[in-house]
Design a protein around this nucleic acid. Structure first.
Lengths: 149, 149
DNA sequence: AATGATATTGAGACTTAATTGCAATGAAAA
DNA sequence: TTTTCATTGCAATTAAGTCTCAATATCATT
């Protein structure tokens, strides 16, 4: 099985770019998140791991990771851009709780198929899509109902 | 038929806020766009219409328009946040061309229903959703195919 | 119509995410 | 080992968006 390191290295080689230790550390840090992350969190994670990588380098590495298909931009929750590791993960969409921020991932084959149909109808060639549903998760909805009683 | 002005005024009254001439002008400018717009474009449109409204006021008015349901945030295309007038418009989703920026609106009843199903399965109470498909429109796809020949 | 309480405005300072220029450094091919 | 050129960190810069505050406008009440 190909690992992410290898995939990134191949991507960089193809672009005639170098696989530096900084880029290796950034990738490693990303894979130690099990949820979405933003640049600031990544910066701190790197320090925790003993790697002082500058923010500039992180900002410069992210477009490469996006292009190589290892990560993807997540929904803009507030103001910061956040990302998600998608290496060897099946595509999925999101339910986002606007109260507690919880993110539920889902995948629905029929929705995917219907999207393809829509694209065909418009002679549109899809590259990627994003479906985000905002609302209240079970717990938060219960809480809110109680409060307004 | 209720017009947008009236709807906004009622919303403001409910919140015990004032319907100032600045807010009126902002609303008017928004309705003279027939596509998505961002804050800078809105600022310029207002000047064209002879109304010098400060950016600060625009930034302060937008959350009110969002809350009142007159506009909605559009997909983050690049870096700027852009908005869309949705007054008396049926909900729709978007196909966005990553080459020319063209936006095609679509509505698919079955996708909507399936989303409701997904939410039920997760005991999630949806408030709003957004589906954006990025790719190439017919024209751009043709152009690109030609170039790579 | 005048009054008064309070929301609103514009200007510019400020905050924060993201980008860029540049000199020093590092990777890898020759 | 040398040479070439991408990469790095730092700090300055840009740009979106927010905030402060004094002056002003709105609207309910008199």
């Amino acid at each position: 099985m190909i690992d992410a390191d290898q995939k990134f290295e191949e991507f960089l080689k193809l672009k005639e770019l170098k696989y530096t230790s900084e880029r290796k550390f950034v990738l490693k840090a990303i894979f130690s998140f099990h949820k979405h992350f933003d640049v600031e969190e990544l910066f701190e994670k790197l320090r925790e791991q003993g790697n002082h990588i500058s923010r500039a380098t992180i900002y410069r590495t992210i477009p490469l990771l996006l292009q190589s298909g290892l990560i993807t931009e997540a929904l803009h929750c507030q103001d910061k851009t956040s990302y998600e590791n998608i290496f060897n993960k099946k595509h999925h969409d999101h339910l986002v709780c606007i109260n507690c921020g919880k993110i539920i991932e889902f995948y629905n084959e029929r929705i995917e198929k219907l999207q393809e149909e829509v694209c065909k109808q418009h002679n549109f060639v899809p590259i990627e899509h994003r479906l985000g549903i905002k609302g209240y998760c079970e717990d938060c909805y219960k809480k809110i109902k109680k409060e307004t009683k």
